[in-house]
Computed example of a mutant assay.
Amino acid sequence: MLRTQHGVRLLGPSDLPALSELVARDPVVNVFVDHRARITRLDPRWMGGEMWGYVQDGELVSACHAAANLVPVDATPEAVQAFAARAIRQRRRCATIVGPADAVTGLWDELEHHWSRPRDVRWVQPHLEIDRAPDVEPDPGVRRTRPGDLDVLYPACVAMYTEEVGVSPEAGGGAAMYRARVAQLIGKGWSFARIEDGRVLFKAEVAAVSPYACQIQGVYVDPTRRGEGLATSGMAAVVATALREIAPVVSLYVNDHNTPARRAYAAVGFEQTATFSTIMF
């Protein structure tokens, strides 16, 4: 029940229907927040943070996931200013700000004089979607990983994360938590790889799922095998399985400067539907 007539308030379990209606305005772009809302039911015990809502005349018009990631949802200019003001009062708790470029840029315009300098900023990240069979033949060697693959898969996950983010997920004692996350994705059936002779040649994970879409992350090809088309056929295999067994739309976002990845995704049949930005601390 949204009692606040105007401004920002914390959302809780009773607000789930209103938030579900909000994310449904663009359920693919908003799949991460939709996923988090569904698995936590907006219960503070499971959120690991907060979900903020911006209310006008008693109606929820925007939201913002405020935990390890600060993720705006359908954020109007007024909501962006209000979310930024709340974030300034609380000081920085997140590791990243990520989401639609306009909202992320607006948030940072308000926050940059109050928060520490970011470690990296990626202003242009095409958001891509596919809802049909891939345009290339899937790699038959790509399969869902199994618990017994964890020891082989984990180093590739660390290498991908370090290459993509710029710091190791094991930094600061994070190894156990990151390994648990990799194991969790395997257990859910959301981890895919081509493994030969004890080496991961290609891998990718589904990171978020809703009834409307899923989002892929962690795409990686062994550095010694890049340029052979493994990413293209591997992604085709992941897309084919995901569309058949996980969600009706597959999405991801990619750095604009990552030309090889963008070529691979285009060859599979992904099309750009939005632009994301990410600010990392």
Rank of each mutant, 00 (worst) to 15 (best):
T4N: 06
H6E: 10
G7Y: 03
V8F: 01
R9G: 12
L11Q: 00
D15G: 03
S20C: 07
L22S: 04
R25A: 06
V31A: 07
D34P: 13
A37R: 05
R38H: 04
T40L: 04
R45F: 09
Y54T: 03
V55Y: 08
L60W: 05
A63V: 04
D74G: 12
P77H: 03
V80H: 12
A82Q: 06
R86I: 08
G99Y: 03
G99P: 07
D102K: 14
D102H: 14
E110L: 12
S116A: 15
D120P: 01
R122Q: 04
R132H: 13
E137S: 15
V142T: 02
R144D: 06
D149Q: 02
V152W: 05
M160Q: 14
M160F: 14
M160Y: 13
T162F: 13
V165R: 04
V165L: 05
G166Y: 07
G172I: 11
G172A: 12
G174D: 08
G174S: 09
R181D: 12
I186L: 10
I186Q: 10
K188C: 12
S191K: 04
E196G: 11
R199Q: 13
F202V: 01
V206W: 04
A208V: 03
V219M: 10
Y220I: 06
R226H: 01
G227H: 05
G234R: 00
A236M: 02
V249H: 06
V249L: 09
T259F: 10
Y265A: 02
A267P: 05
V268R: 02
G269W: 05
F276W: 04
T278D: 00
